[in-house]
């Protein structure tokens, strides 16, 4: 069962492998150009393990930001992780010894892979979540280290490679759109965020968007709960 679980977890993590290695490399290259070498990339990817925060973080390091500014910025950029954890409370409740790592490693992409809460037939579901999380973490750290080491010698331009993260979310959104009957939550996420982006601008829209999404979904609670009875 362990071998099957490992194989299924690896297959599940494959779409993230490409994205994390190239985005991790992007981060490693950026850190390298900012004067932070391979050990910095390795430590940041291992310990922070939050893609966009690490990109922002390089700017903070370069500018010699204060501890307070760094903490507040991290809360602003990563507040969405509160959302992921809230929606995984049930799934991760009885995961035992895996639980601390599962929570630590809950990135956008790992969340996107595991939030449907379904493990393949015949696998150990907790080990499955653990391995998907671990493989993703491994790709991210590996990509960062590769970027820091090889960034200078890449024979081609990597401009635009950051789109792979966008593509992962668009692909997940599309898949979810096809497989779910009730599209109100998905539409709410998309439109509320778009509205907040237009109103608040690209630097400040994320927290208002999270509040608006929570508000709208709360208002629709009765309607969605009724419509979801038939679903697992």
């Amino acid at each position: 069962m362990r071998a099957l679980t490992a194989r299924k977890a690896f297959l599940k993590s494959l779409p993230v492998m490409g994205g994390y290695i190239v985005l991790g490399m992007g981060f490693g290259i950026l850190a390298h150009h900012a004067g932070y070498g391979v050990l910095w990339s390795f430590a940041m990817s291992l310990l922070i393990y939050a893609g966009s925060m690490q990109y922002v973080g390089i700017g903070l390091l370069q500018g010699g930001a204060s501890v307070l500014i760094t903490a507040v910025t991290t809360v602003m950029v990563n507040a969405r992780h509160l959302f992921y954890s809230v929606s995984m409370i049930g799934r991760y409740r009885d995961t035992g010894r895996y639980k601390p790592y599962l929570i630590f490693a809950l990135t956008d992409e790992t969340y996107t892979l595991l939030c449907d809460g379904k493990a393949p037939e015949g696998t150990d579901p907790d080990l499955y979540c653990f391995l998907v999380s671990l493989f993703n973490h491994f790709y991210w750290v590996t990509g960062s280290v590769l970027g820091a080491l090889l960034g200078e010698v890449l024979p081609f331009s990597t401009a635009g490679i950051e789109f792979s993260m966008t593509a992962l979310f668009i692909a997940s959104f599309t898949e979810q759109w096809i497989t779910t009957k009730d599209r109100l939550p998905a539409l709410t996420g998309l439109l509320a965020t778009l509205a907040c982006l237009l109103v608040f601008g690209p630097e400040r829209f994320l927290i208002p968007a999270m509040l608006l999404i929570t508000l709208v979904l709360s208002l629709f609670r009765g309607r969605i709960a009724a419509g979801r009875e038939a679903e697992p």
Partner: peptide
Amino acid sequence: LGKVLPAAIIGMLVI
């Protein structure tokens, strides 16, 4: 919220 947030969050991440 745990049930409806996943779909909304992925929409949010796209934007």
